[in-house]
Amino acid sequence: MSFDSQEGGSQDGRFKAVFACAPECIKRIGADGRLIDMNPAGLRMIDAARLEDVRGHDLLDLVDPQYHRAFREALASVFQGKSVQLQFEAVGLKGRRLWMDQSAAPLFDRNEPGKVVEMIAVTRDITALRAVEGELVRAKVAEEVARSKALFFSSIGNDLKTPLNQIVGYGELLKETALEQGRHDELADIGRLLEAAGRLVSLINQMLAVSLEEARRAASGAAAFDLAELVDDAAAAVKPVLRAAAAEVVVELSEAPQLWTGDADKLDQCLRSALSAAAEFAVKGAITINALAVFGQGCPQLQLEIVARGERLEPFRARARHELGLSALKLARDTARLMGGELKISAEPDGARLLLRVPARTASAEPFEASAA
């Protein structure tokens, strides 16, 4: 762009109109970095009442010190004939701080082509945009922290249920044996043991409630995941619970797509809790898992069928394990609802059947025909 560099020289009328009326800051800067001219919008940005308040001033006086070097390099590049863009933090005459996005270009002397005499820059106030970006980053970090906490609490809760199963089971056994043999002097100690176990159950339930609340606050995040890996990881996470029940897991996913898109974190948490609940019906037995792509509630869904079969327990042991199973089942149901899905359970002659459906899309490259829900 050519421009008459003489101060007070004639300027094109159209340029004057744009310069005066533009909603963004337009300024002319000399090779020494001092301000030659600035339009009214720019003066308002830096809280200057009139041009004379800033004309001839070094623009670095209005730039946060940490951006001085970048500003000098941008100025040098422009006077080498290049156009540059720079974001920096400015400080107005009244101390107000603003984030600026500046696009600058050289002005060439009309009489000496190639000679840069001034820099012209258009600067936008992006303070509000930077604030929104900062909020988004903070929200993303908070979401990841909430997800991590939810998964941690869920995992710890499942791990604590293994010794709790043993405490409650042996406590009930000791109590029933003492009553049968008339050893009433032992009942007080056994009662204290069962009372402590009850407090531990309450503590775990509170911890899982906190886990669910954290997950509820975290926004749902869809991502691609490998179904077989997710199921294997969930089974490994509740391995202590399965070991205590002497139950094995049989995964039958050969007919299901391998890759899916959905909220893998919440699905993992839901599946862990569902497997913990299923373990209470699979003592010395097996838990079988299979999957299917279905369509229900107006969207594609992943259906996981969990079938638990095992031995029938004596009444006192069945009651103890039943309470723990209900806690895990409630968490699994709440998490499924949080995802927009559902978990149903039905009794079987030698166990139970859990049917979990959650929103998810198959991402497999292999053709797969979805079943109707």
Rank of each mutant, 00 (worst) to 15 (best):
Q66G: 05
E89P: 01
Q301Y: 06
F15I: 07
Q181A: 12
E314T: 14
A279I: 14
A128W: 04
K161V: 11
P23C: 09
K175C: 02
S83C: 06
T261A: 08
L302A: 14
E73V: 12
A90D: 03
E52P: 08
L331F: 07
V91T: 13
P113K: 02
V132W: 02
E342F: 06
Q258P: 00
T288Q: 09
N165Q: 15
R319E: 09
T261I: 11
V168P: 05
N205R: 10
R217A: 12
P23K: 13
A22I: 08
V283T: 01
I167R: 03
S202A: 13
A247Q: 04
E252H: 09
V78G: 00
A372C: 12
A234G: 02
W260A: 04
E323G: 07
V132F: 07
G8F: 08
A236S: 08
R97Q: 14
S211G: 10
R28L: 15
A274V: 11
L35R: 07
I345K: 01
S276A: 15
G81P: 01
L302T: 06
Q301K: 03
M100K: 08
P300S: 05
P359I: 01
L304N: 00
E144K: 05
F368N: 10
E176H: 04
E248Y: 03
I29W: 03
E311H: 12
R309E: 11
R199M: 08
V54P: 02
D350W: 03
I289F: 05
D334S: 07
D268C: 09
I126V: 15
E255N: 07
